Computed example of a mutant assay.
Amino acid sequence: MSDQTQRFLFDDNDVRGETATLAESYQHVLAKHAYPEPVAQLLGELLAAAALLVGTLKFDGLLSLQARSEGPVPLLMVECSSDREVRGIARYHAEQIAPDATLRELMPEGMLAITVDPAKGQRYQGIVGLEGVDLAACLSEYFAASEQLPTRFWLAADSRRACGLLLQQLPADRIHDPEEREASWQHLRTLADTLSAEELLGLDTETVLHRLYHEEPLRLFEAQPIRFRCSCSRERSANALVSLGQHDAEQLLQEQGGTITVDCQFCNERYVFDAADIGQLFAGGGIQPASDTRH
């Protein structure tokens, strides 16, 4: 399985972990746009981070990571559902991007919003500044500064694969002494720090965990598949037109020469609506299926 997340749990420590590997789903995201290499890598790291975070949450809904800046990359956005369906997009100014550009150069003074939108319950959002040396450091610092469980990230992407490793300290159960808990947490983090980007991208989960923790008893759980899926549809596009109101929709139809085109920025799918479609929408007749010449 090339696209998956996989959870593991240390038997003698109050720490759990998660790995994420995205290959085919990552390629689907990159295939929609001709991203410069540094942008493709950063987008891959964000995809891996979203997959890791979803693995730590028990919810039915959508997780989104949205980074904004005034720099060469004004927008990065990734969504991952609780079903592990991912999509992502970046906005960039290619002429301002050096081949070896860093996060700080791509998104100076950037901010990252982490939003959990459950199907039922309250929406949650946290904000972190993109001030670390890389995305993994920024996310790790966010959890260190928040009241949530201490969490560390390791991320890598190379335009072929996007991979990640996460460690998260759990509430005291096996170890209750505060100093012993901290020493154990630091020990496991220090071992993970020895993992290179090449190893993270090139080795399977079992090999990575053996390489890092062969002296630590742990349990590896069943892998969960990840896939690319865009949530756009002709019906959702039609609903967006209905929300404009009939007068504005008809005016837009006239301005665009008799057809309204709705483009999905994530997957480049295009939905076209003509005067008959608009009339039927506001007559309460719903939407017509796309014809052979309309999508």
Rank of each mutant, 00 (worst) to 15 (best):
Q4E: 07
F8G: 09
L9M: 06
T19K: 00
T21V: 06
H28E: 06
H28K: 05
A34K: 10
L43T: 05
G44E: 10
L46D: 01
L46Q: 13
A48V: 02
A51T: 13
L53H: 14
L53D: 09
V54L: 08
T56D: 11
D60Q: 15
L65M: 04
A67N: 03
P74N: 14
M77G: 06
S82C: 02
S82K: 01
D83T: 11
E95Q: 12
D100V: 10
T102N: 06
L103P: 05
L103D: 03
I114H: 05
T115R: 15
P118W: 04
R123E: 01
G126H: 09
I127N: 10
E131N: 07
D134P: 09
A136K: 12
Y142V: 04
F143C: 04
F153C: 10
W154K: 14
G164M: 04
Q169D: 06
L170M: 15
L170N: 10
P171H: 11
A172Q: 14
A172Y: 06
R174I: 04
R174Q: 12
E179Q: 15
A192K: 00
L195K: 15
E198P: 07
G202F: 05
T207P: 01
L212R: 09
H214S: 15
E216G: 07
R219Q: 13
Q224P: 08
P225W: 05
R227D: 00
C230T: 02
C230Q: 03
A238N: 14
D248H: 11
D248C: 06
Q251F: 05
Q251G: 00
Q254T: 11
Q256N: 12
Q256G: 02
F266W: 09
Y271P: 09
V272Q: 12
D277M: 10
G284F: 01
